[in-house]
Simulated assay, not measured.
Amino acid sequence: MTRETLWLIVGFAGQTVFTGRFVLQWLYSEFKRRSVIPVGFWYLSMLGSALLLSYAIYREDPVFIIGQSVGFLVYLRNLQLIARDKPQEP
């Protein structure tokens, strides 16, 4: 396997995970019968974003790098807010 093939796999994996977050949100909302964003959405967002950011850095694409970097920070912050609002167990 060539280096280029490996990076293409990373890029496609990132895109697959990133797209999977929408499928998760859609199915979860159908299950709840209302529009809901499950916590898993944010984890998939972070994972997909990290993979795509790695690929963007490899490609040296500044537009892609900035977009994924900002998105990653937003996803991380959402997870921090969710963790902060969880009730603490005694």
Rank of each mutant, 00 (worst) to 15 (best):
M1E: 12
M1L: 12
T2P: 15
R3K: 10
R3S: 14
R3H: 10
R3C: 10
R3Y: 08
R3L: 13
R3T: 13
R3F: 09
E4V: 15
T5I: 13
T5A: 15
W7H: 05
W7Q: 05
W7N: 07
L8I: 15
I9Y: 09
I9T: 02
I9W: 12
I9Q: 13
I9C: 11
I9P: 15
V10T: 06
V10D: 06
G11K: 11
F12K: 09
Q15Y: 05
Q15H: 11
T16I: 12
V17R: 12
V17P: 13
F18H: 11
T19K: 04
G20A: 11
G20P: 15
R21Q: 05
R21C: 12
R21H: 11
F22R: 01
F22H: 09
Q25E: 10
L27T: 04
L27Y: 09
S29C: 02
S29T: 02
S29P: 05
E30A: 00
F31K: 04
R34V: 09
S35P: 05
S35D: 06
V36W: 03
V36T: 03
V36A: 02
I37R: 05
G40H: 02
G40N: 06
F41C: 01
W42C: 03
L44V: 05
S45F: 05
S45H: 05
S45A: 08
M46K: 00
M46Q: 08
L47F: 10
G48L: 02
G48Y: 01
S49R: 01
L51G: 01
L51A: 05
L52E: 04
L53Q: 01
L53A: 03
S54M: 04
S54W: 07
S54D: 00
S54I: 01
Y55H: 12
A56I: 10
A56Y: 04
Y58K: 07
R59K: 10
R59E: 07
E60D: 12
E60Y: 09
D61V: 10
V63D: 13
V63W: 10
V63H: 06
V63T: 10
I65D: 02
I65R: 00
I66S: 11
I66A: 13
I66K: 00
Q68D: 00
Q68N: 08
S69A: 08
S69K: 00
S69T: 07
S69W: 01
S69E: 00
G71Y: 08
G71I: 07
G71M: 03
G71Q: 00
F72S: 03
F72I: 05
L73Q: 03
L73T: 12
V74S: 08
V74H: 08
Y75T: 02
L76H: 07
L76F: 10
R77E: 12
R77I: 13
R77A: 06
R77D: 14
N78I: 04
N78M: 07
N78Q: 11
L79S: 13
L79P: 15
Q80W: 10
L81H: 12
L81S: 14
I82V: 07
I82T: 06
D85S: 15
D85Y: 08
D85C: 14
K86L: 14
K86W: 03
P87T: 15
P87E: 15
E89S: 15
E89Y: 14
P90S: 06
P90A: 15
